[in-house]
Nucleic acid binder design. Sequence first.
DNA 1: ACAGAGATGTACT
DNA 2: GTACATCTCTGTG
Length: 203
Amino acid sequence: MSKLPPSFYTRPDSVTIARELLGKHFYSSFDGVLTGGMIVETEAYSGENDAACHAHLGRRTKRTQIMYETGGISYVYLIYGIYSLFNIVTNTAGTADAVLIRAIEPTEGLPEMQLRRGLTKIEPRLTAGPGLVTQAMGISTVHNGVSLFGNEIWLEDRGDSFSDEEIIAGPRVGVAYAGADALLPWRFSVKGSKWVSKAKPKY
DNA sequence: ACAGAGATGTACT
DNA sequence: GTACATCTCTGTG
């Protein structure tokens, strides 16, 4: 299939990219095991001007430096000591934009993902949430900085897309500390999909 | 159904 | 020491 090209990721507006990622397919392949599905929920983060972004005010640390790279690589970090959250770095080198993948509709490697999640049946809890997607797909912080043009983690356009009427734009989850920026409608999800996370932003 | 708490590593004050 | 782009489990209605 057709992997998303570098030109998809290097564009300057992470909000547009987050919106367009709905319907794209997200895959991982480790030790010959292919898992993944269609993206149904994302959030945009916009570098130094975004109080919710780890790179707010141009912050550069060991953790955030990867976000300043050219778009098309992963940014994976550990949250709450337990969960790995997978982001796609966007924009050109020197900017620190990223898009968080929050939920997918599983299509590949269902048995393996179910095993990794420790579930007895296929249900939304398999991949409905950023910490759950990574667990199901076997992604952890060791995959920070991985190219999305290689053979471990990548995205494809398989012809699925959604009109504006089929998409919900709302505030991001878990970023109340960001003040006014927490209200920005930078979380996108597919309306009516049972695979979207249940999390609700707090104001 | 909803609320509260615990889990547990890394970054940063 | 505190906070964190989360999720699960347990107790209560």
